[in-house]
């Protein structure tokens, strides 16, 4: 019996994994790649048989709306990640100095991560609401403003509001990873730097921060994937509007794919978005590997 041959055994043993990956990942991926090259509309299933090559991609690249969403996603990513890094670093440094109640604070710090993004979105939608929102109420009660500010409608403010919600929810990812880094940090180099003539800021800048960077890059990798596919929080707060002012890639993709039922075009966008995520992950991962190299084996 040829099937009994020993060289087939590994494949046989791996077949559950291979089949799962095939049906769950590979086939849908190939299928969506194919549909991104058809004018596939959900309302006209036959259109899936018309092959149009790269026409969807060509149309996409000459579409201003797409490029705006693309650029806004990158801006969203850059601002949110940097803010989260800086705030997370601050929180981690503060918690690291606490000697009493550290565990409790560490747990409390994680609370925002435990909420669903949908709920966080709703919460901030109410905070930022121009009629009944608590923020406008507070500003007016304190006499800082007279009229109401349209937080979710105004052009730059809409994006700022969404970023605020995102930062509130996910800063603790940075904080917890950087805190782990601070706990793992050896004390000797810090003391050596003090003796070598560093003031506290220089110790932080030249010794602590470089040591923490690998941890920051891990957080960046995780978070860049998260933010690049941001959909729920944006959809709940503004739905990408008004007039597309807060449209990011995935809200646009959902609109084109499901509302306009142009699945072919939406899939083409999704592919571009996936490549963007891969690019970010690759970038941070290279940085991480470079930063880790000198840490390996060092005492």
């Amino acid at each position: 019996m040829r099937w009994r041959a020993e060289k087939h055994t590994p494949f046989l043993l791996l077949s559950p994994a291979i089949l799962t990956i095939l049906f769950v990942v590979a086939i849908p991926l190939a299928f969506s790649l194919y549909t991104s090259m058809t004018p596939y509309k959900l309302t006209k299933p036959d259109t899936i048989n018309t092959f149009v090559g790269l026409r969807n991609y060509v149309r996409l690249f000459s579409d201003d709306k797409f490029w705006w969403a693309f650029g806004r996603t990158i801006l969203f990513l850059a601002v949110a990640l940097n803010l989260e890094f800086i705030l997370g670093l601050g929180i981690a440094l503060l918690i690291n100095r606490i000697t009493w109640g550290q565990r409790t604070l560490r747990t409390m710090m994680m609370f925002p991560m435990m909420f669903s993004p949908i709920l966080v979105g709703f919460q901030f939608k109410y905070i930022f609401n121009d009629n009944i929102g608590i923020l406008n109420n507070a500003l007016q009660a304190l006499g800082i403003t007279d009229g109401s500010i349209a937080w979710l409608v105004d052009k730059p403010l809409g994006m700022i509001s969404i970023i605020t919600a995102e930062v509130w929810m996910s800063t603790s990812v940075f904080a917890i990873l950087l805190l782990a880094g601070l706990f793992a940090m050896p004390r000797d180099p810090l003391e050596a730097a003090k003796v070598d003539g560093c003031n506290p800021w220089q110790v932080f800048r030249h010794i602590t921060l470089p040591f923490l960077m690998p941890f920051a890059f891990i957080a960046m990798t995780i978070r860049s994937l998260d933010v690049a596919r941001a959909y729920d929080i944006v959809d709940v707060m503004t739905g990408g509007g008004p007039a597309g002012r807060t449209e990011v890639l995935w809200t646009l993709i959902a609109r084109v794919g499901y509302d306009n039922s142009k699945m072919g075009e939406a899939n083409a966008m999704a592919y571009v978005s996936t490549l963007l995520s891969v690019a970010f992950t690759y970038y941070f991962f290279t940085k991480l590997v470079a930063a880790r190299r000198y840490m390996g084996g060092a005492e």
Partner: peptide, 20 residues
């Protein structure tokens, strides 16, 4: 005085080199 103002240098048991 903080260590940096004492005009001394120190060699540590674990070397305490800057790994990066």
């Amino acid at each position: 005085l903080p260590p940096r103002k004492r005009n001394i240098s120190m060699v540590f048991q674990n070397y305490a080199l800057y790994p990066h």
